[in-house]
Amino acid sequence: MRTNMKVSTLLPIMAAFIGISASAMEISSQDIKEGQLMGKTFEFSGMGCNGSNLSPQLSWTKIPPGTKSFAITAYDPDAPTGSGWWHWTVLNIPVSTLSLPQGASGKASPGLETRTDFGKPGFGGACPPKGDGMHRYQFTVWALPKAKIDLPADISPAVVGYTLNSMVIEKAVLTATYVR
């Protein structure tokens, strides 16, 4: 005998799945917008670039259960390196912190800033090669199950990325662009 599941039985199940995706963690910024060009304020100062090199304001909401800390990364997958370019890595941001002000890197950052592909800790702004076209800058907030990740400040950004991906509860990404 064949049994047909009624639509009324499926609706609560479908609603549960929709509810999960509707409550996904979100990242926003007063300074940068999804898919939009960043201002020169967020351009690197050096290597042929002459911006203000300020980290953008970032906020995040809809924190998943089990979160004990956050990390933030900024990554350019379009850098002509074969492996992208890490512009910012911040670990051990307390779970009570739900935003960072503009220019937080180096002075107001509540977490551990680790080495970027510029060779030192702290935010390194956009600096794509002239004529290389538009680059994407992925600002990601990571919800993590540990209050502290025990990595040194001089760790490679690839190891930071690997570590975050191995334990992330949930993440949210804001992708801005830049071109020179």
Rank of each mutant, 00 (worst) to 15 (best):
I20A: 14
S21R: 03
S21L: 10
A22Y: 12
A22T: 12
A22P: 00
A22E: 10
A24H: 09
I27D: 07
I27R: 11
S29G: 09
S29M: 02
S29K: 01
D31H: 02
D31T: 10
K33E: 08
E34A: 15
E34P: 04
G35T: 13
G35H: 05
Q36V: 09
G39K: 08
E43W: 15
E43K: 10
E43P: 00
E43N: 09
S45N: 15
S45V: 04
S45Q: 15
G46P: 11
G46S: 08
G46A: 15
M47R: 14
M47K: 15
M47L: 14
M47W: 13
G48M: 12
G48C: 11
G48P: 05
N50I: 03
G51S: 08
G51P: 06
S52N: 15
S52R: 05
N53M: 02
L54N: 02
S55H: 01
S55C: 04
S55I: 12
P56H: 00
P56I: 02
Q57A: 14
L58E: 04
T61H: 09
K62T: 09
I63N: 07
P64Y: 03
P64K: 06
P65K: 15
P65A: 11
P65H: 05
P65S: 14
G66M: 09
T67L: 00
T67E: 04
T67V: 10
K68P: 00
S69I: 01
S69F: 05
F70A: 02
I72T: 12
T73K: 11
Y75F: 15
D76Y: 00
D76T: 13
D76A: 13
P77H: 09
A79E: 13
A79I: 08
A79N: 12
T81D: 07
G82K: 12
S83C: 00
G84C: 14
W85S: 09
W85Y: 13
H87V: 00
H87M: 08
W88C: 07
T89R: 03
T89M: 07
V90P: 00
V90F: 06
L91P: 09
L91I: 05
L91M: 08
N92Y: 06
I93E: 04
P94F: 11
P94E: 11
V95E: 15
V95P: 03
V95T: 13
S99L: 02
S99V: 02
Q102C: 06
G103D: 05
A104D: 04
A104K: 02
S105H: 04
S105N: 11
G106S: 04
G106Y: 11
K107R: 12
K107Q: 14
A108R: 04
A108T: 03
S109Q: 07
G111D: 06
L112K: 07
L112F: 08
E113V: 10
E113A: 04
R115A: 08
T116H: 12
D117C: 12
D117N: 15
F118G: 15
F118V: 06
G119S: 06
K120N: 04
G124Q: 01
G125M: 12
